[in-house]
Each structure stands twice: as structure tokens, then as C-alpha cells.
Amino acid sequence: QTVHVKGVQYHFPNPEEAVKFALKVAKDLGGRVEFHGDEIHVE
């Protein structure tokens, strides 16, 4: 599972961890989380 944050990719073997990370980052940055297939983008 890959999380993209402002052009940087973070790889997580566990999808659940990836989602938790993405939600935390989005909250910290005041952004939103978008799901694109296997990828999660924080915009």
C-alpha cells in the first residue's frame, strides 16, 4: 500500500497502517485523503 503526501511516497505492508497514517497526516496538514485503487493520496 502506497501513501502519497506532497510528492513523497510512503510504503506500508499493511493497508490498515497506511490508512491510519494517511488520516493522521491529512488531519495534521488540514488536507483530505483520496483513495485511488491501491494508492492513497493526501491532498
Rank of each mutant, 00 (worst) to 15 (best):
E16I: 11
E43Q: 12
K6S: 12
D28T: 12
Y10G: 00
A26Y: 02
L29K: 05
K27N: 11
K6Y: 13
H36R: 14
G37V: 05
D28N: 10
V3R: 00
A22K: 00
K6G: 14
I40A: 02
A26R: 02
V8F: 10
K27E: 11
E43G: 08
V8R: 12
D38Y: 10
G7R: 04
F12Y: 03
G31K: 03
V5W: 09
H4S: 09
K6Q: 12
A22F: 03
V19T: 07
I40T: 02
A18C: 03
V3I: 03
F35L: 08
H36G: 04
E16T: 10
D28I: 14
T2V: 13
V3P: 01
Q9F: 10
G37S: 06
A18F: 02
Q1G: 09
G7D: 06
G30E: 06
G37K: 07
G30Y: 06
K20N: 08
E39T: 10
K27C: 13
K24H: 08
H11E: 06
E17Y: 06
A18M: 02
A26G: 03
E17G: 04
I40K: 01
G37A: 07
T2M: 07
V3N: 00
K20D: 07
A26F: 03
G30K: 08
E17R: 05
A18I: 01
V3E: 00
H41R: 10
V19W: 15
E16M: 10
K6L: 14
V19F: 14
V19E: 07
A26M: 05
Q9K: 14
K27M: 12
G37T: 05
V33F: 04
V25L: 13
R32V: 11
I40M: 05
H11V: 09
L29S: 09
P15M: 15
V8I: 12
F35P: 02
P15R: 15
D28H: 12
V3S: 01
V5K: 01
E43Y: 15
L29R: 05
A22E: 00
E17H: 06
D38H: 11
Q9C: 14
V8E: 08
V3Q: 00
V42L: 03
L29Y: 09
D38K: 12
D38C: 15
E34W: 14
I40Y: 05
K20L: 10
R32F: 11
K6P: 02
H36Q: 08
G37H: 08
V5N: 02
V5Y: 10
L29C: 11
V8D: 05
F35R: 06
N14R: 06
F21M: 03
E34I: 15
E16C: 11
L23P: 00
V8C: 14
G31F: 11
K24N: 09
L23R: 10
Q1I: 15
V19C: 13
V3K: 00
Q9M: 13
V19R: 11
F35E: 03
E16L: 10
H4R: 11
V25C: 12
V19M: 15
K6D: 14
V42A: 02
E17N: 06
E34G: 06
E34R: 14
K6E: 10
H4C: 14
V19S: 05
H41T: 07
E34T: 14
G30P: 06
K27S: 11
V19Q: 08
R32M: 07
E39K: 07
V25D: 00
G31R: 03
H11G: 04
R32W: 15
A22Y: 03
V42E: 01
T2D: 04
K6R: 12
A22T: 00
P13S: 14
T2S: 07
P15E: 10
V42G: 01
D28S: 12
H4A: 05
K24A: 14
F35H: 05
K24D: 08
H11W: 15
H36K: 13
H11K: 09
G7Y: 04
G31I: 05
D38A: 11
D38V: 09
L23F: 14
E43D: 08
L29V: 09
E34P: 01
P13H: 11
V19H: 09
L29G: 05
F12G: 00
K20V: 08
V5C: 05
K20W: 09
P15G: 09
H11A: 06
L29T: 13
L23E: 12
E16F: 10
K24C: 14
I40E: 01
A18H: 01
T2F: 08
Q1A: 14
G31A: 11
Y10K: 02
E34K: 12
K20H: 07
R32S: 08
E39V: 11
F35S: 04
V25P: 00
Y10H: 05
K24I: 08
